[in-house]
Nucleic acid binder design. Structure first.
Lengths: 137, 137, 137, 137
DNA sequence: GTGGTCTAGACCACT
DNA sequence: GTGGTCTAGACCACA
């Protein structure tokens, strides 16, 4: 997994980091039980401040993606409330799709995009245990 | 159209306002050529500061949803770059779907949500010219 | 001469009108001694407010392009202070060229543009008394 | 580099600041990669309000002169679209030269002014790293 | 300590 | 009466 921060982005760095970790989990490059790099390691690896990594990890914990363990660090552990997850998804899609509708993006185009993205994530899911990942083991 | 600001939300007020106006356009409650209320009117209506409304309108202008006509104020005018719109949509969906995949939301569930939302927006499109809207004329 | 106002421009309407009249004079489509349309006529012709036309004419008077006569209206009359004109030109060019230098526009390219524009204005100078002009006689 | 605001000018303060920064870049007193002073520092230095500086920086960002780096602040970074730059230059010159033509300024005089200004900017380019500049490092 | 956000009040330019 | 500008003070998110 590669972490790539865009320092010119209007998106906060900790949000960028959070998103990339979530995408890493979605592609199964990071698996349940894996340990994320320590705050210090991740900070050096991504070229950002330790506090910023800390913030990202805290958010991930609050959202139920990792558990913070004093000894092992941040362990990926998916704590799912399906109902709440669907509700959040609905709200997120609501804004994103409204934006698209204003730009004349059709329902079919959205469905295609959804399939495209799901395919990409599931492909990543099956076979790509390439080396050089940042997770420890 | 109803503008409802959640002052407890972590989302910036001007972003909330922007989103609701975009949703208003998506549901066709606000139409191309309509004039948005003046910043002062909208500010009073939504219970927020004039400058905050200004910021929201500026963002909408930059995003190509409204044009500022020196005589009429903020006029809804959709300036669409379809290619760019699709690319933005792809990026937005990428994060949102990754989040959902981590929460075990299936491809089918997403498709259902998309249809649900599209139906809601298109229904608003056909017949509900209820009075009391905020756009002038 | 055609007056074309861009209501979406960030430039004030009266400035747009002033600029177009100045360009009209530069191309010799409007000549010394010509009378500009009355405030009322110009307002209707350009689709703008009388006050706005008034403002533009006042600016032109202050800048020494026209004389306002109660009976004849706005008469083109070039009142030139060459020294001051050169100084103004220098200041205007200063900002415009700095902007260009930052964008890697070469001295040669500027000279070419200057020639291009001068040619255009002087060509307009010699033979194009096309009908439909807005000046009265 | 010296920032000097004319509070009696009809030109908006944030535009004056923008222009002076652009001129600073043109004279190479501010270089690509330099960091502009923080909004607070610049505000104190120029004797104006923080928010006004902010506005100037925002405009510069939109025009592609600086990028906002979340760590370092406003970093000078020239994002050039040569074609667009030439078109803007043409439009700017169009008005400025029309003005000059009305004042009997000859093509030769303009060429001389252009050379004069280019010389001044390029001279600043070669050797004057005088201390006391406002950019950091 | 940085920029971003929000609020507020005042003045002006413009239409 | 409109938006634009400027100032000001406060709080927060971010690094």
């Amino acid at each position: 997994m590669v972490v790539k921060i865009d320092f010119n982005s209007s998106e906060a760095i900790y949000i960028q980091l959070r998103n990339q970790i979530i995408m890493g989990i979605a592609t199964d490059r990071i698996r349940e039980g894996d340990t994320l790099p320590s705050v210090r390691q991740m900070a050096e690896y991504a070229g950002i401040n330790m506090h910023t990594v800390n913030k990202a990890y805290s958010v991930l914990r609050q959202e139920g993606f990792v558990k913070l363990d004093r000894r092992k660090g941040a362990v990926v552990s998916l704590d799912i409330d399906k109902y709440q997850a669907l509700e959040e998804m609905r709200q997120n899609l609501d804004v994103v799709l409204a934006y698209g509708i204003c730009r004349n993006i059709s329902r079919q185009e959205v469905h295609q995009l959804v399939d495209l993205i799901y395919d990409a994530y599931l492909k990543g899911c099956t076979g790509c245990q390439e080396s050089g990942g940042i997770t420890e083991e």
